[in-house]
């Protein structure tokens, strides 16, 4: 008998406690998904400042940063290099999503994905060297140049608006 009622008792107790403790809400409200939600702060997806707005902007950023990293590799501080590499890798990671938000068709998108993977592998090796306190060798592979060139050639196809 004890076991039979103990669970029920615990539940009733919890319900009573919650009724007494049920706390207040924010002042203004709005309706989201059929649910009234207190609106104390703006809800939004924050984008990093270096997040490119379009495929063309992303490719330009990659090209620019690639040239800058190669040119200043021996000159900038290790911390600045690390930051530059992290941002470059971020852009490469976002590139497939940004390309999916363009007019590129499947074979073209697959090409973008392949180039992004190639460049990521290359810059990953740079980033690991920089993170372990070494300066990466300043000799970019030809594949990198070809990958960036390939990304550039897809720019007109990314915006087919008449």
């Amino acid at each position: 008998m004890y076991h039979e009622y103990s669970a029920l008792f615990a539940t009733v107790l919890l319900v009573l406690c919650s009724t007494l403790l049920g706390c207040g809400n924010a002042t203004t409200d709005t309706s989201v998904r059929g649910v009234h939600v207190p609106q104390t702060e703006r809800l939004e997806h924050h984008q990093a400042p270096h997040h490119p707005r379009s495929y063309a902007a992303a490719v330009s950023q990659i090209e620019l940063r690639h040239a800058r990293i190669q040119a200043e590799l021996g000159r900038i501080t290790l911390d600045a290099l690390k930051r530059e590499l992290r941002e470059m890798l971020d852009i490469l990671e976002w590139l497939p999503t940004i390309a999916a938000d363009s007019d590129l068709k499947k074979p073209e998108w697959d090409q973008v994905k392949q180039c992004a993977t190639q460049l990521t592998e290359f810059y990953d090796s740079y980033a690991s060297a920089a993170n372990s306190g070494h300066r990466p060798p300043g000799t970019p592979r030809n594949e990198c140049r070809r990958a960036i060139e390939s990304l550039r050639t897809l720019m007109p196809a990314a915006d087919r608006r008449p």
């Binding site: 319900v15 049920g22 207190p38």
Partner: peptide, 9 residues
């Protein structure tokens, strides 16, 4: 119970 304990959002 959860709805009682947790205010909207």
């Amino acid at each position: 119970l959860l709805s009682m304990l947790l205010p909207a959002g």
